[in-house]
Simulated assay, not measured.
Amino acid sequence: MTGPLRPAFHEGQVLAAADLAATVGHARASAARHARHLHEWGIAEGLALVTGSRTDPATDARYVEVTVSPGLAIDGTGREIVVDAPVVLSEAGFAEVNGAERTTEPYPVFLTAVDRPQAATGPASCAGGGESTRVEETYQILFGRLGDERLVADQSPPDAGAAPADPPVRWLVLLGFVQWTDGHFTDARADARGVRPRYAGVRADTVAARSGTLALRSRLTAREGEPALVLSGEDPPSLVFGLYQGNGSVSPLMTVAANGNLSIEGSFSGRISAGSVLVVSGTATDGMLLPLPSGVSAEEVAAGQVALHVYVTPRIPPAEAGFIVPAEAGVDADRRVRCRLRGYDPIGEPGEVTERPGAVDFLVLATVPTANGGGAG
């Protein structure tokens, strides 16, 4: 087996067409391998399905004209597919594939690479017998049948060292879906049946920032209220998760400092580990349900995965006359507070005993039992 062959030249060499073709082929193959193995294939820019409202002059029916916006895709062979101008989807082309069907289900729209040799023109064409001297690397838009969007996931990339194929291998890049009613497109959408267009990505074990700050966000542009993850090497270093503000800065929701300290703006919840304790405290009146500590669910308590320890202390208000004592202070199996206060005024005529609802200060501890006398379960 041999590796890729790079053309080499020397003084006085007579260059044949094959020599020049090999020069172009070596560069094309190198670029394709780079795109195929260092990136995830998909849409890199644009190529959205855009709709415009129209009216059928014959029937006055409303429909939409669907246009593919200009953009760039990288297919799974590493080939660039460039759409340099808006393309209006052909209703006639759709009708040839799916026009006989009567359904409002969305149909997939694909983009694939195509080569078109260009005939030689001018004085050079006389010597070459009219053979093409240029190849247009262009594209074709295809309409699929219902369910054909699943074909995208079944495509297999070429071998590691494979050069670009001539003509190119048909590789389907899903652009989106269109709906069809009575001879016209009526809508376009990005996803259907759990499938959506795939976008280009990168394969890397290390991502390094030149400015000292690395930001991850969910969209191309920063939008107010959208999430962001910012790794900063500035002084002091930090890892911040937050939301973009209108001025483009990130408002922290969670911050990890260089010393390991964690700061959060909201509450913390999640499954607690064996041996750990979560606590909630406060004041509750008779008949109220005591809350569970954040991160503990009622299902975990009912299943015995979490043990609760509840402590209540009745709050004794000052008596205007006589004295007040707790008649009852506790919680039932549903964590409902039972608190009654009893008052007695011995000076009254006659001495009166009263009873009324009261309040308690509570402390709820949630623990996960350890296994085998101390090991985490």
Rank of each mutant, 00 (worst) to 15 (best):
G377R: 11
D84Y: 00
F94K: 07
R210Y: 11
M1C: 12
F177Q: 06
L142Q: 08
G52M: 02
A100R: 04
G201R: 07
P7R: 11
V301H: 14
A376P: 00
S218K: 01
E328I: 03
G122E: 04
R356G: 13
A8S: 14
G225P: 07
L363S: 11
R315S: 12
E300A: 14
A44M: 15
T23H: 06
L220W: 09
G212M: 09
A58G: 13
E91C: 00
R340D: 07
D154K: 15
V250T: 15
A327S: 12
L175F: 01
D148G: 12
S267H: 13
A160C: 00
V368E: 00
T51V: 08
R33W: 13
Q13M: 09
A44L: 15
Q155R: 10
P326I: 02
L243H: 15
A228P: 11
R217P: 00
D84E: 04
G122D: 05
N98F: 01
Q305L: 13
P4K: 07
R28K: 00
G161D: 06
A113M: 07
A319C: 02
L20D: 07
L174H: 14
S30K: 04
P291R: 11
A95M: 10
T367V: 14
E300S: 12
E349S: 09
E80R: 08
A366D: 12
Y63E: 06
S232R: 09
G99F: 02
V83D: 04
V207D: 09
V169R: 12
N247L: 01
P108G: 06
W171Y: 05
A215C: 15
G260Y: 12
G246P: 14
Y311E: 00
M254F: 02
L365H: 05
D334S: 12
T103C: 13
L172F: 12
G295H: 15
V279Y: 06
V114T: 13
Q118R: 09
N259I: 03
P318N: 13
T112I: 01
G246V: 13
G129E: 01
V97P: 09
R210M: 13
G46Y: 03
Q155S: 07
A258K: 03
E40C: 11
R102E: 15
W180I: 03
R170V: 15
F185A: 06
G242D: 02
T370M: 11
S156D: 04
R79L: 11
S132F: 11
P86T: 07
A222R: 12
P252E: 02
T77Q: 14
V279S: 06
Y311V: 00
V152Q: 11
L146V: 05
A222C: 03
L308V: 05
D286Y: 09
A274E: 05
I81G: 03
G377T: 06
G3V: 09
Q155N: 08
V306R: 06
S218N: 02
G304R: 00
L253H: 08
E328G: 01
V280E: 07
A190R: 12
A44F: 15
V135R: 09
A188Y: 04
P117N: 10
A16Q: 15
D182I: 05
V64L: 01
S156R: 10
